[in-house]
């Protein structure tokens, strides 16, 4: 097992929950590991969303064969691909809708509800997410120097500019969706069908895809 800590710094509290994913993990395992790492971190208004969870939860995609097993233990969460044990609870989710349930959970209702809540931690403001996104993706070859954001917030346009330099990339769209893209909760390419618009070259789109995979899957 390897730590899923590239994206989110591990919680340094003495009793911090450690999230571990298996070696050579699938995208789903990586996505769950990254999401639960964020859910277990400090700074969330609701605290560690994985705290106190004990049991095994199967997570299945509603429209693909993707599946994973999450084992919640004392201070440790392990994520592995596939479901090869009898889980305490099963969640069937839409992976393009931030783990939204597509059918009633099976098994332990409380574990299922709390597990699903951990998979949907509150998103930061899009501006904070953009800052972090741009920091994390600096080492990707060909990434533009400057990210320009035109967010459509509840009270009107919210412009933003991140980074310095000569090459720019513009991303526009609903504020909540941009927060999802910049944190990895939402898929960048899928977001282009959901209201996000971009301005840049095809090559930059390719690089931005790599950047979005970095924050979504840690690859």
């Amino acid at each position: 097992m390897t730590e899923s800590s590239t994206i989110e710094a591990p919680d340094v509290r003495f009793d911090a929950t450690r999230v571990a994913i298996e070696d050579d993990a699938t995208p789903l395992v990586r996505l769950i590991g990254r999401t639960l790492t964020r859910a277990s971190g400090q700074g969330l208004p609701a605290g560690d969303l994985t705290a106190g969870l004990v049991g095994t939860v199967a997570i299945r995609s509603h429209d693909t064969p993707q599946a994973a097993t999450v084992t919640f233990g004392a201070g440790v969460v392990e994520v592995t691909s596939g479901v090869f044990v009898e889980p305490d609870a099963t969640l069937v989710v839409d992976l393009h809708a931030r783990f939204a349930l597509t059918e009633e959970p099976a098994g332990d209702a409380d574990l299922a509800a709390r597990g699903q809540r951990a998979l949907r931690p509150p998103l930061p403001h899009w501006r904070d997410a953009a800052v972090r996104f741009w920091e994390i993706t600096r080492d990707i070859a060909g990434i533009p120097d400057v990210l320009i954001v035109e967010a459509a917030g509840p009270d009107g346009p919210e412009p933003g500019r991140f980074g310095e330099g000569t090459t720019t990339y513009l991303v526009a769209g609903p504020a909540d969706l941009l927060a999802g893209v910049f944190t990895g909760a939402d898929d960048f390419l899928a977001s282009l069908d959901a209201g996000v618009q971009v301005q840049g070259t095809l090559s930059q789109l390719s690089v931005m895809t790599a950047a979005s995979w970095k924050v979504r899957f840690d690859v």
């Binding site: 990707i140 070859a141 060909g142 990434i143 390419l189 070259t201 095809l202 090559s203 789109l205 390719s206 690089v207 895809t209 790599a210 995979w213």
Partner: peptide
């Protein structure tokens, strides 16, 4: 196929 920086000879098709 996306996910890499194009070399100079590749562009907008």
């Amino acid at each position: 196929v996306l996910g890499d920086a194009f070399p100079e000879w590749r562009g907008n098709l």
